[in-house]
Amino acid sequence: MACSSWHVLGLGLCGRTLIQTWVVMVVVASLALVAARGARSGRPTWLQNLFELLIGFIAGFMGTTPQGLLADRRQRLLFDLLAALFLFILVSNLLDVIPPYSAPTNTLNTTLALAIIVFVFVHASGIARHKGGYGRTFLHGGAAGYVLLPLTIIEELSKPLTLSFRLFGNIFAGELMIMVLGHILGGLRFVFGGFVFQVAWLAFSIFVAAMQAFIFTILALAYHHQATADGGH
């Protein structure tokens, strides 16, 4: 994987990925700022409408409304994380479409970091909710819970793993397909519309980008719900 490493303070950093991440951060932050500053009530601007749609969408999956979010601080924290994840992953994956850029999520570095953030947040929320009895929530189903405990622990550890690998695999394989579809035709891909296969795959990649961002966010919400809900598994 193309990763020109920088050496900063004794650590090796992946330079290209870092720069792509900064580009994504600048895009998301500037879009959000422009949307918020130019917000009008009654005649929403285009960008404001887009962000309101997004906020309503995520709030709907949390089972509340944007107005309800303003009241509850803990819900607000969860919403902040979900909205940040969704926007970051969506813009990162979409950055892949523009030729000089590549998605920062095409390396396990970025996706594993995101999955670890979700993992830490979920378990910290669970501990905050259940305090000392958090370990007991892993014993599902009465007496058989002790027998199943190793499996439950493995399942809990596999969650950040599959979360990171799913996103990484989708984006990396997508990028690779773009390259492979070019190599099939060789030099012909530059003339006579020989690039139509790559373009078709790019269109599918845009759909996959949005879908993977959505799935990552939904799974983060589901894991958080599992960790903080009282009662059944």
Binding site: T162, F165, R166, F168, G169, N170, F172, A173, M211, Q212, F214, I215, I218, L219
Partner: peptide, 17 residues
Amino acid sequence: MFISVGLIEALPLIVLV
């Protein structure tokens, strides 16, 4: 359906990579 497809395709993609 789209959620399920994304989840189901995760493991074959992991195998591919």
